[in-house]
Design a protein around this nucleic acid. Structure first.
Length: 467
RNA sequence: GUCCCCAUCGUCUAGAGGCCUAGGACACCACCCUUUCAAGGUGGAGACACGGGUUCGAAACCCGUUGGGGAUACCA
């Protein structure tokens, strides 16, 4: 049997970081087994679902390269089918109409609380009542009949065997009084109709699985395998919420995180393969399995994400990184000449090893993006205010003009020779040079910068600074 | 309250009863490299929540305690 997994977000906001990991695990599991990964938007709750949220989720899924098979489906479009299933269940005597008022329900909840637990909230008062007793003017809901005795065991692929006493399960609503399905019915029907073989989702659904299991059985359908993965918590161990900072994956995209780094980080949260830390998508597909998913919740650690991001930036193709920088440059209103673009790509390795995110990379890149004259920061101006520094810059410039080649090593040699001839430490020469060429006191190796900048641009910047 | 789940360095984790004097990664500290800043290299500090069992032997298995989390909707 071919594997079919699905990611089923409810479009009430952006793609949550935890949801992204759930999606990733579903994707990886499906790909590992050569199966299909489906996307189903759970917009059953029309009031809370928005089109903006749907677009945001699809955008983030694409950004993370979690490509789903076929077109995404929308749960709300199957409403008629859901209703039909619920009504069939009533006809089969496996579900029934319930005419309770909200007030009666509130009272039951109160009773359940006061009784010290051990009892269901809904007392089943319409479970065996004859339909002829139905009060007029009340649209009923449909409740499913849950078993009252024995226990239910779920063989969860992550959590192991989990058993729950059936008397803790009450007859929950599967169809609302307005004829729309509840989540509990809709997931079951859709998972069945879509041929889902493995339901991999958050831990918070573990309790629901017991309920859904009985819906599957009432319908006479095969029950998919369940795998409930632990939730991601904030740095303080509590459920991830707004006060923990960014929750949506789009926020990380905006922060300058690479999608590969994000996926790698998420993958290692709750899943491991020995001591491996940096894992490519291909490798992840080959290695991923549910056995290696941990059972305890993990905390989100921004530092580690940033570290991983830095590693990916260093190893990603310079041309691609440069393209990202150009986007930032454009947003900042900087026009980049073709020459500058070449410099950017050539200088990328030296830049990328100094940045933690793409925006830092853009900032670092500025020295290559513009042509002389360049902007100077305060430290650079201070450095160049020294007459001796300008003097040495002038002398060095003369030597550089005579350089026969413009490679990093040769430039380094010229500067060293010059410093030695003047009895100066190399730093005495290199720092003013750095200020003159980069407009800053911090930069990649200054000889690398010169090599990347090229003879003309280097000399032009030197001339301006030495004046 | 009740039900369910979880528990190894600050964090993510390795660990399938002897390979554990508990390993790796991030963060932290020191040193090296060095023209600045990073990166990189080397080293350091740092954990099996607690109490009982089981066993010749438990981080690993069982029970309890404590702590954390989740679920208890005509939300998903």
């Amino acid at each position: 049997m071919s594997v079919v997994t699905r990611f089923a977000p409810s479009p009430t906001g952006f793609l949550h970081i935890g949801g992204a990991r759930t999606a990733l695990f579903n994707y990886l599991f499906a790909k590992h087994h050569g199966g299909k990964f489906l996307l189903r938007v759970e917009d059953t709750d029309r009031k809370r679902s928005t089109d903006e949220a749907i677009q945001a989720i699809l955008h983030s899924m694409r950004w993370l390269a979690l490509d789903w098979d076929g077109a995404e489906t929308y749960q709300s479009q199957s409403a008629a089918r859901h209703r039909e299933v619920a009504e069939n269940l009533v006809a089969d005597g496996k579900a029934y109409n319930c005419y309770c008022t909200p007030e009666e329900l509130a009272e039951m909840r109160e009773n359940a609380k006061n009784s010290g637990g051990g009892t269901r909230v809904y007392d089943g008062r319409w479970r065996d009542r004859d339909p002829s007793e139905a009060p007029a003017g009340i649209e009923p809901v449909i409740r499913i009949k849950m078993p009252h005795e024995g226990e239910t065991t779920i063989a969860d692929l992550v959590q192991g065997n989990v058993t729950k006493a059936n008397d803790t399960l009450d007859d929950f609503i599967i169809l609302r009084s307005d004829g729309t399905p509840t989540y509990m019915l809709a997931v079951v029907v859709d998972d069945h109709d879509m041929g889902v073989t493995h339901a991999i989702r958050g831990d918070d659904h573990l309790n629901n699985a017991f309920r859904q299991l009985h819906v599957f059985e009432a319908c006479g359908w095969d029950v998919p395998e369940f795998a409930h993965i632990p939730l991601i918590h904030g740095s303080d161990g509590a459920k991830l919420s707004k006060r923990h900072g960014a929750l949506g994956v789009e926020a990380y995209e905006e922060m300058g995180i690479l999608p590969e780094a994000m996926c790698n980080y998420l993958l290692r949260l709750g899943w491991s393969h020995g001591d491996d830390e940096t894992i490519s998508r291909e490798q992840a597909i080959e290695w991923f399995d549910l056995d290696s998913v941990g059972r305890s919740p993990a905390r989100f650690d921004m530092d580690k994400l940033l570290n991983l991001n830095a590693q990916y930036m260093k190893t990603t193709d310079p041309a691609r990184m440069a393209a990202g920088v150009l986007v930032d440059a454009d947003a900042a209103g900087i026009t980049v000449s073709p020459d500058a673009e070449k410099r950017l790509v050539a200088g990328m390795p030296g830049l990328a090893s100094r940045a933690k995110n793409t925006h830092e990379l853009f900032d670092l890149s500025r020295l290559y993006l513009v042509d002389a004259p360049i902007e100077m920061n305060e430290k650079a101006r201070d450095n160049l205010a020294d007459p001796e520094a300008r003097q040495s810059l002038n002398e060095l410039a003369e030597l550089l003009k005579k350089a026969t080649s413009w490679g990093e090593d040769e430039l380094d040699g010229i500067a060293r020779e010059y410093a030695e001839s003047k009895g100066l430490k190399l730093g005495k020469v290199a720092q003013p040079l750095r200020s003159a060429l980069t407009g800053s006191n911090v930069s990649p190796s200054i000889f690398e910068v010169m090599a990347v900048l090229g003879r003309d641009e280097t000399l032009a910047r030197l001339e301006i600074a030495a004046d």
